[in-house]
Write a protein that binds this DNA or RNA. Structure first.
Lengths: 191, 191
DNA sequence: AATCAAATTGACTGATTAGTCGGTCGCAAT
DNA sequence: ATTGCGACCGACTAATCAGTCAATTTGATT
């Protein structure tokens, strides 16, 4: 219930993540989560009102951690292209370092278990991206495309890269990430 | 069980699709599917060995129908750019015309309910894309990128467009599709 | 030492669900 | 007319699961 730190609470969240990506929602009973976390079922329901709220908490807290990584050191980047490249590469590297968390997002981003409230709260944390996009569009380095498309193009590149590296782990390298970003940037760069 | 045509079988598949995208797997009991399809539960299990096989059948048959659309009239296209554009636009248009089917794919493509067998069979039907990619890479109109990336870049563009149009239905238009494809092609076109 | 609240336990329950099974119906072949 | 068979039915069952609750432990405060 409370969001304060608790070792058992963390253990429950960790077990939930592991089981959920391996077995899916319907094949992950709360009893198994509790067992894996080394607690009683009662403890699980003490910390989380119900199973759905547990998933939502996991979603929100995982996303918060990811976005922290994305924000780190953006201010150090020079021009707008470098700024976008920095955020993008941070995202890809986070995804590679946290495959389970990434898979969880993919599996649950559009699932009915995640409430609208949770979804909105997660979206809010993405605000800082809008500033970057605005800066990009106001510069003269970008084609004249509308902002919503820019945003989805950006996200699409990320998803594409993650898909690609999941299917072909041997292709993971700084060089290929740079290559991908070049392709991406070429697509929208002003002539 | 049999894959032959049967009105009730079709009704079950249709009800499954509708309920699945609305309620998700775990909240769609077979009893409800049967009710919605206007048949008895026994009939459902007569046509499909179990719930999982029902989902797999739906996945496979829906994908087959989609790929039929993608293949249509490709041979009429002229150069390789037009060929790729044709397949891509067919895919996007199919997705827009069949939102439930598309959502179903998104929701279940990486889910544990879809067996490896089903996944492989679906992948096989995509073979014809490989020929197109090979033709593209052998031409001098494309940057020197490796085939696996080309494939995933292609798929990524599709997913991105679908995401974008789902979030912003007012942006659906031939013009925007063409714009997207231009951006895409710009990214990989030889200098 | 006494008090109290929060954390934890796990047996238990009410509800739900996937899948079964004995049997009916309609129809095609002999 | 009889046989056989596949489609179909729906009440039923065995199993499972989310969530409860009364009892116990822990740890901080007075």
């Amino acid at each position: 219930m409370t969001a304060e730190y608790s070792e058992k609470r963390e253990a429950i969240l960790k077990a939930t993540l592991n089981l959920l990506v391996e077995r899916g929602f319907h094949d992950t009973p709360t009893s198994l989560i509790a067992k894996e976390a080394g607690v009683a079922t009662g403890t699980l329901f003490h910390h989380f009102k119900n199973k759905e709220e547990l998933i939502n908490a996991l979603y929100l807290e995982t996303k918060r951690k990811m976005i922290e990584v994305l924000k780190k050191d953006v201010h150090l980047a020079g021009n707008i292209e470098e700024k976008i490249k920095h955020v993008w590469k941070s995202a890809v590297q986070w995804g590679i370092m946290h495959p389970k968390e990434y898979q969880f997002f993919q599996q649950f981003a559009n699932s009915p278990f995640i409430s609208k409230l949770t979804r909105d709260e997660a979206l809010n944390q993405f605000e800082f991206i809008n500033d970057i996009i605005e800066e990009a569009l106001n510069s003269d380095r970008i084609k004249n495309i509308y902002p919503e498309f820019f945003m989805d193009y950006f996200e699409g590149l990320f998803t594409m890269a993650m898909n690609h590296f999941r299917k072909h782990p041997e292709k993971i390298s700084e060089e290929n990430m740079d290559m991908m970003f070049d392709v991406y940037w070429n697509g929208i760069a002003a002539d």
